[in-house]
Design a protein around this nucleic acid. Structure first.
Lengths: 152, 152
DNA sequence: CGTGGTGCTTCCCACCGTGGGAGGGTCAAG
DNA sequence: CTTGACCCTCCCACGGTGGGAAGCACCACG
């Protein structure tokens, strides 16, 4: 199977196939005499595994671990579960971060008239005036004394 | 004020200050005779604006828009609100995506014994066996015939 | 047998922000 | 004058992915 076939049947682009090989996520493919990469049905299985793992947002590094465990008959499921749990924790953290951003921005947008007038709570907050309702970034220098009011 | 001072009081790293200047997010700073960048209190205000916008996850491109609107006394708040709403929509989409990933992975992890034995639903699913409970990626080639079982 | 189109190769560039660091000039305090 | 803290520019890295150019390989059709 050439790289095009492998790509089409695995859902991993040829570009990514070469990239994964270059970073050692998959072993170097066997080559034909003229240098074409050759893949087996088995390789495609691994690629599909990788593809699904990527779809779940796992980093290449963690996928490396999982592929290793997958190929290791003596693995313990605890090891696999740990990798998954780590990723869940990371996703969770990211979700919380984005949610805080969204909530803050949504509140500001809700407070904005959205009409032809220039007055806008969103800009006021970003300019430092709305120190009361900001909570997203948690830690930030509280010192926000007097705004020179050159803008706004 | 030198770049170090501006950085310290605005919360934007010196590195980023130079970068923002290079991409045109902020105007080119005035220089001393020996080439040091010089900032005013007013520049720092803008930098804090940018910093807070970044904390809310806004892209540089959108921040450019907002800074422009901020400096424009004739703006309409509707324009500002639109930029904010666009970003909220983007955040929302990302949150949904990550949440779907997390939920799927969490379910798989919950089904995993996490003991010394090799049998593991997480790997089974990634290998293509668990076609029943996958829902995250929505569109994927359903054709997942027989797994050669070379692994697992 | 030629030729065109498709496929494969490698290599470089781009994205988006951010950090690190090398190599060199400046400034102020001791 | 020396030393340490700054500042300058320029390059590289990250994570993954896509785009594209230049140059062979292969296949099918005429």
């Amino acid at each position: 199977m050439n790289i095009g076939q492998a790509s089409a049947t695995s859902g991993v682009s040829a570009k990514m196939l070469r990239y994964y090989e270059s970073i050692g996520l998959i072993p170097k493919a066997v080559r034909t005499e003229v240098g074409y990469r050759v893949y087996t049905e088995n390789d495609v299985q691994t690629l599909r595994f990788i593809r699904r793992a990527r779809d779940l947002g796992l980093s290449i590094e963690r996928i490396k671990l999982l592929v290793g465990l997958w190929h290791d008959r003596g693995r313990s499921s605890a090891d696999v579960k740990r990798v998954a749990a780590d990723h869940v924790a990371e996703l969770e953290a990211k979700i919380l971060e984005l949610t805080a951003m969204r909530d803050t921005l949504q509140e500001l947008a809700d407070a904005c008239h959205g009409d032809h007038r220039p007055e806008c709570p969103i800009l006021r907050d970003l300019a430092g005036g709305g120190a009361k309702s900001r909570r997203a970034p948690a830690s930030r220098k509280a010192a926000r004394a007097s705004v020179p009011a050159e803008h706004c």
